[in-house]
Amino acid sequence: MAFQALGELLDETLALPIKDKTYTIPPPSAATGLRVQAIMQAAAVAADGGQVDEAVLADAAERDMYRDVLGTAHAEMVADGVTWPVLKHCAVTSMVWIVQDKGAAERYWNSGGDPSRLAPNRKQRRSSPAAASKTQSRGSTSGTNSRPAKSAGGKKAAPRA
C-alpha cells in the first residue's frame, strides 16, 4: 500500500455562502497557519486570565490577519462591498477552520458567531446517544436493603415477619 497524494485526500478550501454568492477561502500558507495557531492560543490564555506573550500579539497587530486568513477572497469581498460584520465573521470562521477543522468552522458560521448558539441546548444533550450511555441509574431510595442485616454476633438476623 502506498501513500496517496495528499491533494486527493484533503479538501483544502472553505466555501462561505454570502447572499447569492459563495466565496472560496484558499488554504492558508504554513506561516499563516502557525501564526493563527499562536494567536488563538494566546487569546485562550488571556481569556483564562493567564500571562500572554506580548510578542505574539504584537506580531498579530503588525499584520493584516483577516487578509491573510481570507486569502484571495478578501479582495473579492471588499470589491463586492461586503459589510464589516460579514467580513469579520468570514475571517473568524476561517481562523476556526485553520485552528480546528471544517466541522468546527461550520458550527461557528451557523451560530452567527454567538457562543450561546454553539453549545447544544439541554433537550439536545439529553436526547443524544452519548448522554444515554453516560448517565448512570440512581440507586434505590426505598430504604430497603436486599441483604439481611447481621446481628451483633456476626450471624444473620432472622427476617422480620
Results as ranks from 00 to 15, higher is better:
residue 76 E to F: 07
residue 61 A to C: 05
residue 33 G to N: 01
residue 40 M to T: 15
residue 7 G to A: 11
residue 37 Q to V: 03
residue 12 E to S: 12
residue 69 V to M: 03
residue 133 S to Y: 12
residue 79 A to L: 13
residue 153 G to S: 13
residue 88 K to T: 15
residue 145 N to R: 11
residue 93 T to H: 00
residue 76 E to Y: 09
residue 42 A to G: 01
residue 158 A to P: 01
residue 62 E to D: 12
residue 145 N to G: 06
residue 72 T to L: 06
residue 86 V to K: 04
residue 17 P to T: 13
residue 77 M to S: 03
residue 115 P to A: 10
residue 137 S to F: 09
residue 38 A to Y: 03
residue 119 A to Y: 11
residue 98 I to V: 15
residue 113 G to M: 04
residue 22 T to L: 02
residue 83 T to A: 10
residue 124 Q to A: 14
residue 65 M to E: 09
residue 149 A to V: 13
residue 79 A to I: 15
residue 19 K to S: 08
residue 64 D to Y: 05
residue 14 L to V: 04
residue 142 S to F: 06
residue 110 N to P: 02
residue 150 K to I: 08
residue 33 G to T: 03
residue 86 V to C: 05
residue 89 H to R: 13
residue 54 E to N: 08
residue 42 A to F: 00
residue 60 A to T: 02
residue 133 S to A: 15
residue 97 W to I: 00
residue 161 A to F: 10
residue 97 W to N: 02
residue 10 L to P: 03
residue 79 A to V: 14
residue 74 H to M: 11
residue 42 A to P: 00
residue 88 K to N: 13
residue 18 I to S: 00
residue 73 A to W: 02
residue 98 I to S: 01
residue 108 Y to C: 02
residue 38 A to T: 09
residue 11 D to Q: 12
residue 106 E to S: 10
residue 127 S to L: 14
residue 22 T to N: 01
residue 4 Q to P: 06
residue 34 L to S: 07
residue 4 Q to I: 12
residue 96 V to G: 00
residue 66 Y to Q: 07
residue 88 K to D: 13
residue 1 M to Q: 11
residue 145 N to Y: 09
residue 128 S to V: 10
residue 27 P to Y: 08
residue 147 R to M: 11
residue 152 A to N: 08
residue 126 R to M: 14
residue 135 T to R: 14
residue 54 E to T: 15
residue 154 G to H: 02
residue 12 E to G: 06
residue 101 D to A: 02
residue 155 K to C: 05
residue 14 L to W: 03
residue 57 L to M: 15
residue 101 D to H: 03
residue 62 E to M: 08
residue 46 A to Q: 11
residue 153 G to N: 13
residue 57 L to V: 15
residue 120 P to T: 04
residue 159 P to T: 10
residue 53 D to F: 09
residue 152 A to D: 14
residue 141 T to W: 06
residue 157 A to N: 09
residue 48 D to N: 13
residue 140 S to W: 10
residue 12 E to P: 05
residue 30 A to N: 08
residue 3 F to N: 08
residue 153 G to I: 12
residue 20 D to G: 03
residue 12 E to I: 15
residue 158 A to L: 05
residue 104 A to F: 06
residue 67 R to H: 06
residue 33 G to Y: 03
residue 25 I to L: 04
residue 75 A to K: 09
residue 142 S to I: 04
residue 96 V to Q: 01
residue 58 A to D: 13
residue 137 S to D: 14
residue 62 E to F: 07
residue 2 A to W: 06
residue 6 L to C: 05
residue 150 K to N: 09
residue 90 C to H: 00
residue 13 T to P: 01
residue 51 Q to Y: 07
residue 141 T to G: 14
residue 102 K to G: 10
residue 16 L to Q: 01
residue 29 S to N: 04
residue 118 L to S: 06
residue 148 P to A: 12
residue 7 G to S: 13
residue 58 A to Q: 12
residue 86 V to N: 05
residue 64 D to W: 07
residue 58 A to Y: 05
residue 61 A to M: 10
residue 51 Q to I: 14
residue 93 T to Y: 00
residue 13 T to I: 10
residue 4 Q to R: 07
residue 134 K to T: 10
residue 24 T to F: 02
residue 97 W to V: 00
residue 11 D to M: 11
residue 103 G to K: 08
residue 123 K to I: 12
residue 117 R to F: 03
residue 85 P to V: 08
residue 80 D to T: 07
residue 44 A to K: 12
residue 60 A to I: 01
residue 84 W to F: 11
residue 1 M to W: 05
residue 30 A to K: 07
residue 38 A to P: 02
residue 126 R to C: 09
residue 28 P to C: 03
residue 134 K to R: 13
residue 58 A to F: 06
